[in-house]
Nucleic acid binder design. Structure first.
Length: 350
DNA sequence: AAGCTGTCCAACCGCTATACT
DNA sequence: CAGTATAGCGGTTGGACAGCT
């Protein structure tokens, strides 16, 4: 038996909000606050709306300082980076983007960013025109499961169609792992938001090192686009190529082949699939399947849940070393420091 | 001009987590 | 500790709109 509905569905208005409803809700909350009870709120102010609907309307539209549309490139990058690091936890991502709502970011990702990334990725593949297997697959595309499928699962990452294409990356250097510190308004140097983020993630990341590793993953992906330039902030680096960065975020930075196979690390898509199959949490791969190929879906159909750190470590093999303390062979230096904040500062010494 | 198609986004739905009794 | 209520989250839907044929 299911739980009782949160409100009387028959007497509740649905659909778009009228300006009058907006005004009522807004003025009440501005004067009295929510009272800690959204369910009771619509009755108090005479709105024939579900409490959940009121909450959503307030949070996504009426709340002060809400920004709509006009995402900047830096915001794009941050969203991509965080998505790659933590997946579709939109509320956490939104917490790093002042004035943005989780719904907005989610919509933006689903309607634009995902396509943008895929577009860049395809462009990248296209640039490598000599890739004969790619050509074959492109030719074959029409006969495979239709255009939608090819959109979701770029052929070059398809695990069941021959050798996967591995983008080449410059080896990671300490400079490419510089902390993410210059992104205006959404920096991980924002101590408070960082703390909140960590607290929120606490339930999923079992210890401090895991948390730091995860965040480092997100931070480092932003700084690897600079191709080893010492000025690694997008806004500071005169050679920063946004298009290239997006393409790299979509492919190269996610899986880093230069690390090779290391103990405790997984560095190929097929290894990722295998590892995921072992731990088996398809949810953790949601949205990333387009990076990995359609083998994922069947590979992850069953099995117990796995901590996201498992995925994070797969995607960022350098980070897993920080978190778990093995596979040290791939660390860039004996002392690796992260300066998100004093409290989060850490070091790893072999 | 009309119909079709694709895109965008507000809002809903169902689920889990958390708080409360 | 168990049961229930509420908050919050992420996925999905459907309508409005724009562009194309």
């Amino acid at each position: 038996m299911g739980r009782a509905p949160c409100c009387d569905k028959a007497n509740v208005k649905k659909g778009p909000w009228s300006p009058e409803e907006d005004a009522k809700l807004k003025s009440y909350i501005e004067q009295h606050g929510t009272g800690g009870n959204w369910i009771a709120l619509p009755q108090k102010i005479g709105l024939k709306r579900c409490g959940k609907s009121c909450r959503l309307r307030w949070l996504n539209y009426l709340r002060p300082n809400i920004k709509h549309g006009g995402f900047s490139e830096e915001e794009d990058d941050l969203i991509c980076s965080l998505y790659v690091s933590i997946g579709s936890r939109w509320s956490i991502i939104a917490a790093q983007l002042p004035g943005r709502t989780d719904n907005d970011i989610k919509n933006y990702w689903n309607t634009r960013l995902k396509k943008k990334l895929l577009g860049k990725q395809r462009k990248e593949y296209g640039r490598r025109g000599n890739n004969s297997s790619l050509k074959r697959r492109e030719k074959k595309k029409g006969s495979i499961a239709g255009e939608e499928n090819s959109m979701e699962y770029p052929s070059s990452f398809s695990s069941n169609q021959g050798t996967p294409y591995w983008p080449e990356l410059p080896a990671a250097t300490p400079t490419t792992m510089m902390p993410y510190s210059n992104l205006e308004g959404a920096s991980f140097n924002d101590h408070t938001s960082m703390r909140k983020l960590l607290i929120k993630l606490g339930g999923r990341f079992s210890d401090h090192n895991d948390q730091v590793a995860m965040i480092q993953a997100g931070a480092s992906s932003l700084h690897q686009y600079s191709n080893g330039q010492s000025s690694s902030s997008p806004s500071q680096n005169p050679n920063y190529d946004h298009d290239q960065s997006m393409a790299m975020l979509s492919s190269a930075t996610i899986i880093q082949p230069q690390f090779g196979v290391v103990e405790g690390g997984i560095t190929t898509p097929s290894a990722l699939v295998e590892e995921t199959q072992r731990f088996g949490d398809p949810q953790r791969l949601d949205g990333l399947e387009f990076l990995l190929g359609d083998g994922i879906e069947t590979a992850c159909a069953e099995g117990p849940s796995v901590n996201w750190n498992d995925m994070s470590s797969v995607i960022y093999p350098n980070s897993v070393n920080v978190a778990s303390g093995y596979g040290l062979g791939i660390q860039q230096s004996p002392l690796q420091e992260c300066s998100f904040s004093n409290e989060l500062r850490y070091s790893v010494v072999q």
